[in-house]
Design a protein around this nucleic acid. Structure first.
Length: 730
DNA sequence: GTGACTATCGTTTTT
DNA sequence: CGATAGTCAC
């Protein structure tokens, strides 16, 4: 037992609720952790406390996060606190924990421990194949739509059979068919998709009492981070694992639940106290990050949502500056202004790494991208294509995958003709069909005699499989993964083909592959009993590559989703317009509450200074003219006294780079007079008032005296007859 | 089987 | 506008 002093040290500097959460013993606990309230600190200190006081042994701890990064950070911080390595602790993502369980018990579900993990691109590819097999028109029934339906079903614990029982439309009938086909295909290929990791783990625990007993006895202490983002399967999984000891501590913030579109169910956190009536509830409301003004803005914003768990963030960091709100003429003016502001701040001595710009959609980064480049401001864009999703990386991984999982038709299809070997679509289909007919693996089919194959194709496949067989022999030696990967890249001709291209892009791909080899080498060093299949599964679950770099003096650009969990002294949120943010689709689907939570997440990232900008006009897709916009309703939800806006902003006059003045607004409203309208009266950009629909803006004029108006609170346009509609200019 | 051309369609996306 | 998927002709 360690000295009491060490334990005291763990509790030092914690506020009373934090201390309460850290020292809570047996029994369920809900930690409502407001933004910036020291949540990670509480979890890590709690784990360390449990270990230090001897209540827990490392092997009894299961700490679940959503990202690998969060898991790595958590383990690191715990190890720092307890002063030793704690390999036996399960500190990992839901998916990684499931993968580990499934590997150990794969046979119980009809898989081998070498099963492949499919990402969403693989998923879609297979869906398309299933659709094609049944002869459905993949334009009418897009793989994308199938994927989202099936994924949603899996995440809400609805199996293919159950789905089939509840179909209510022809579309759903097709989904049901494809769902069943797709699952069958996965099983045949010895593969699971991301959603299956959870779903199959639940099946494993439900069907095998002994397995459930073993794990639920092992994990005496379970902690879950970002609980507001858990979905139904994850909920069930936790239930199965914690039924024995009931020491489930969840940490989350209902106000930051922003992954509903990924089937996260906010009810999990809202109803935790109903699920566990004896739950100990701790609220962390003291914020250590932002000024009181920023917190007040966030509190005010979120108070527009119903059914939030009551919470009030406060800080002793002081009032700080007002939230800045700026109107710009268009997105270019917006980008120019933000760029100029950043330059000004940097001149004043602010480090670029202290500045972040958030937007709703990735596409919005483009204009800013250009402007910052032109101005010579160093920046990084977070998001975009991920390392492990790059074609060349996926190809390389597919080679390795096929070596360990000869049933993986997706991997085979991917690599057979990459690099080009003269194996086309038709030959591939023949091989796959043959494997299917004979009930053998693709590997076996490709090695054997495939009926109906033309001689050139047969030779090409023969040579390919010779290479693969040679590589397989190497793989079976269980040497370092890096060496095997290197051999794969050389002997498959992949590198040669890239070199032959002699382009900059190809050079970049070679570099990416080198990076992959390094990653493999890293694995070889770190893994205790490394194996190729473990490396592959680990890699499949590790998607984030473009890790945030903190120390390079770069301004950070990212979506608000990506901003969760981060903080920056200076934050800009751009595109604060209805239709952009809240996004038009969210408005249509009346998903405003989640959208508002996203705004809340954005706002609460700011430590010192928050600036919100919106553009008077914004370009749609086509090069066609920019369309007038309405400023975001979220801006109206901010109390005037928290912002630096003296009064309501004029909507009649675009005022590039500057706030419109009161007098301009007054002039604008004095402009109209007529009672009956003449279509001539309106022009695009006019602000109008409709007797029933309220305020809007003219977005288009059409022949026949039709004015197209977008009203506040609606994501779409309405066509109105100018002379009869009860509208007038404001 | 491969390259070039054209139609289509646009959120967010921890794993 | 621009990425990407799908079609068509060699």
């Amino acid at each position: 037992m360690p000295a009491d002093a060490a334990i005291d040290h763990l509790l030092e500097g914690l506020n009373p609720p934090q201390r309460d959460a850290v020292t809570h013993g047996e029994g369920p606990m809900l930690i409502l952790a407001g933004a910036g309230s020291g949540k990670t600190r509480v979890i890590t200190h709690r784990i360390a406390y449990l270990l230090r006081t001897g209540q827990a042994r490392p092997g009894e701890i299961l700490a679940i996060t959503f990202t690998n990064k969060a898991a790595a950070e958590m383990r690191e911080r715990v190890e720092l606190l307890v002063g030793r390595a704690t390999r036996a602790m399960w500190v990992m993502t839901f998916h990684a924990a499931c993968a580990r369980m499934l590997r150990a018990h794969a046979d119980k579900l009809g898989f081998t421990r070498q099963f492949t993990i499919y990402d969403s691109a693989d998923q879609r590819r297979l869906m398309k194949q299933c659709l094609d097999n049944r002869g459905y028109d993949t334009k009418r029934y897009t793989p994308r739509a199938m994927q989202s339906q099936i994924s949603r079903a899996k995440n809400t614990l609805v199996t293919a059979e159950q789905y089939a029982e509840t179909v209510g439309s022809p579309f759903e009938e097709i989904v049901a068919e494809i769902y069943a086909d797709y699952d069958r295909e996965l099983l045949r290929m010895n593969a699971m998709d991301f959603d299956d990791m959870l779903l199959n783990s639940v099946r494993l625990l439900e069907r095998h009492q002994d397995v459930r007993d073993a794990y639920s006895n092992q994990f005496r202490w379970v902690m879950v981070d970002e609980y507001q983002d858990t979905n139904k399967v994850q909920y069930r999984w936790l239930q199965l694992l914690t039924s024995e000891h009931r020491n489930l501590a969840v940490v989350g913030d209902d106000a930051q639940s922003i992954y509903g579109f990924r089937a996260a169910d906010i009810r999990n956190i809202l109803e935790f106290e109903e699920d566990y009536p004896d739950a100990h509830v701790v609220k962390l409301e003291q914020n250590y990050r932002s000024t009181q003004t920023i917190l007040d803005a966030a509190n005010a914003l979120i108070s527009n949502n119903r059914g939030q768990m009551p919470k009030h963030l406060w800080t002793d960091l002081g009032q700080g500056d007002p939230v800045r709100v700026r109107e710009m003429a268009d997105e270019h003016a917006e980008a120019r202004w933000v760029t100029a502001e950043i330059q000004r701040l940097v001149d004043e001595g602010v480090s670029r790494s202290e500045i972040a710009v958030f937007y709703r959609t990735n596409a919005q980064s483009r204009v800013l991208d250009e402007m910052l480049t032109r101005a010579g401001v160093a920046y990084q864009v977070i998001g975009g294509p991920k390392f492990y999703e790059r074609a060349e990386v996926k190809d390389a991984i597919a080679y390795l995958t096929f070596l360990v999982n000869p049933q993986d038709a997706t991997a085979f299809t991917r690599i057979a003709n990459s690099p080009r070997r003269g194996i086309g679509q038709t030959s591939l289909s023949r091989v796959l069909a043959h494997a299917n007919n004979m009930g053998i693996s693709v590997w076996e089919a490709a090695e054997g005699e495939v009926p109906g194959l033309a001689k050139p194709a047969r030779n090409a496949i023969g040579r390919f499989m010779d290479t693969m067989n040679a590589l397989k022999r190497r793989a079976e030696e269980n040497g370092p993964v890096a060496q095997l990967l290197d051999a794969v890249l050389h002997e498959s001709g992949y590198l040669d083909a890239l070199h032959a291209e002699r382009t900059i892009e190809a050079q970049g791909r070679v570099e990416n592959l080198q990076e992959l080899v390094s990653a493999a080498a890293q694995y070889d060093v770190n893994a205790e009993n490394g194996s190729l299949d473990e490396f592959l599964q680990q890699t499949s679950l590790f998607a984030d590559s473009d890790n945030l770099r903190e120390d390079e003096g770069l301004v950070t650009l990212m979506t608000m989703h990506n901003a969760k969990g981060l903080e920056f002294p200076i934050v800009f949120m751009i595109g604060m317009e209805d239709g952009t943010f809240p996004h038009s689709r969210s408005i249509e689907e009346s998903n405003l509450e989640e959208e508002r939570r996203l705004a809340y997440v954005g706002v609460t990232r700011a430590m010192r200074q928050l600036t919100l900008t919106y553009a008077r006009r914004r370009m749609g897709y086509g090069g066609g003219g920019a369309t007038p916009t309405i400023k975001s309703r979220f801006l109206d939800e901010l109390p005037r006294e928290l912002t630096d806006q003296p009064a309501r902003i004029s909507r009649g006059f675009p005022t590039p780079g500057r706030v419109a003045s009161w007098s301009q607004a007054a002039a604008a409203s004095a402009e109209y007079s007529a009672d009956t309208n003449d279509a001539q009266l309106f022009k695009v950009g006019d602000d109008v008032v409709h007797a029933q629909l309220g305020d809007g803006v003219v977005t288009d004029l059409q022949p026949g005296g039709i004015v197209v108006v977008r009203f506040e609170g609606e994501g779409r346009d309405r066509s109105l007859m100018a002379d009869v509609a009860p509208i007038r200019k404001r």
